[in-house]
Design a protein around this nucleic acid. Structure first.
Lengths: 260, 260
DNA sequence: GTAATAGTGTCTCTGAGACAGTATCTC
DNA sequence: GAGATACTGTCTCAGAGACACTATTAC
């Protein structure tokens, strides 16, 4: 028996009752595209959605809950969250996942002293195309956020979801996380749509001015760069419009937002 | 024995090894005032500092560490953090305290599986005047942040401190947490000093333009309001200057900072 | 008058937003 | 030409920042 192990056991038997487990729970957000049946090519409607799983008959009966599971001593919390995310979605690529907050109050889990480390993950819908979440018979399902809030969620998951949504809205305006919902190369209309979908109050009402703000102001110089082909010409997309739209990508530079 | 208790015990013996404790650790920041010996009244120099405690001879020897302690099943994490904060500082008033993040990786604490829920607290130095931290013989001491980073901190507390500082810097520019370091009523120079102390890169170089930005722009209308006396006249302070300076307070309104 | 902070005036250039107009392409 | 998106032009007013200037008070 190693000295380290001896020390641990000494510690455990000494003094404290300790938690009955430390699970991570994940608020996985995605943006669903709903095609509009228009006479010419058009941008789809977009809807912010969250992944929920139906709990097997346990203490919380058949309620919907955030996906998650217990962490192990041998892994970090990030690893646990990512492992759970992969188990639920079969995603194998790296996705945006970030710790939100740890929740505990007496009684939050009727099984005992079980805090929960909540994570927020943002995933492009494309990566969810072939996961259980799209199988109606599955216990996992994507819900538009208003519908999710209408459900009677297990544990304190409504509170977690509320906090997660607030965090994502703040970050959508102050960082470049919009990129989690976009392909590497995107048009300005797509970017604007993502922002408006996550933060309904943003609504710029004017694609033209949005474009100028992003491209013509020195404060934001370098936030976006046009995608160029081998011969230095801008690359256009006609995916959502007959009129070709310039493609952009994020550069990595993020201007600092401040109130003063 | 209640059904709940029975269920818990069933759960505990079933399957999982669980953490050996869930402590909270606190990054308590304050701003120290260092008087300048000038010929007339002047603003003191300000320095951002963090509270550290010297660990008794345990696994980490005599290293400095963030204050903290184990949470109990009967309390929330916020309550635990606040309790620990009070124990270390004897503060009895409400102060700004906010959860930062939960840290765990295998081996972070040689005593076993012990994650740590980190908190950030911002406290006006006035409230620390009569605490252990000002007693040199005490095990608790305030360190200017550069000095704190020069120390070899226990556990992963350097990483926590780094994250905490980054969070405070972001929030200083995007929220009104500056109020945690200010009295209810303050002058614009005091506010500017607080911002510059926490975010050295802010340096506005021009008190005059700072004043106009805060008072004359519609976007920020209502961020600050002048303090008025009973007869509706503005109230002035001569605490830091022979020339009386108007006093302001935060209103509660916070403009939203955004990058788009 | 001097030392320190408090505050104003003015000028220039950037930027935000309203609104209208033109362009592009498919059917 | 209709339908949809993709821009560009123009005008006005707000705001950022540089810089210089005046004001206030104790000593």
């Amino acid at each position: 028996m190693s000295p380290l192990r001896a020390k641990r056991i000494h510690f455990r038997t000494k003094k404290y009752r300790s938690p009955d487990g430390l699970p991570t729970d994940i608020c996985l957000f995605t943006i669903l595209s709903i095609p509009r049946h228009t006479k010419t090519k058009s941008l789809p409607h977009k809807q912010l959605a969250v992944l929920l799983i139906k709990r097997k008959s346990d203490t919380f009966g058949e309620q919907w809950a955030l996906p998650g599971g217990f962490s192990h001593e041998s892994e970090t919390l990030d690893e646990c969250a990512y492992r759970e995310l992969k188990e639920e979605t079969n995603i194998d690529r790296d996705v945006h996942i970030e710790q939100l907050k740890t929740y505990y109050k007496p009684g939050r889990d009727p099984r005992g002293w079980i805090p929960s480390v909540a994570y927020v993950s943002l995933v492009h819908e494309e990566l969810l195309k072939h996961t259980q979440a799209n199988d109606d018979a599955s216990d996992a399902q994507l819900f538009p956020i208003e519908e999710a809030f209408a459900l009677n969620l297990a544990f304190d998951h409504r509170e977690i979801l509320t906090d997660a949504l607030q965090r994502v809205r703040e970050q959508m305006l102050q960082t470049t996380i919009a990129k989690a919902f976009l392909p590497d190369e995107f048009t300005l209309s797509e970017l604007l749509q993502v922002i408006e979908t996550v933060v309904p109050s943003f609504s710029s009402k004017d694609r033209g001015n949005f474009e100028r703000r992003l491209l013509a102001t020195t404060r934001r110089q370098g936030l976006l760069e046009p995608v160029l082909s081998a011969d230095g010409q801008p690359v256009y997309s006609t995916e959502f419009s007959n009129s070709p739209a310039k493609l952009y990508r994020f550069t990595g530079f993020t201007p600092t937002a401040m109130i003063y």
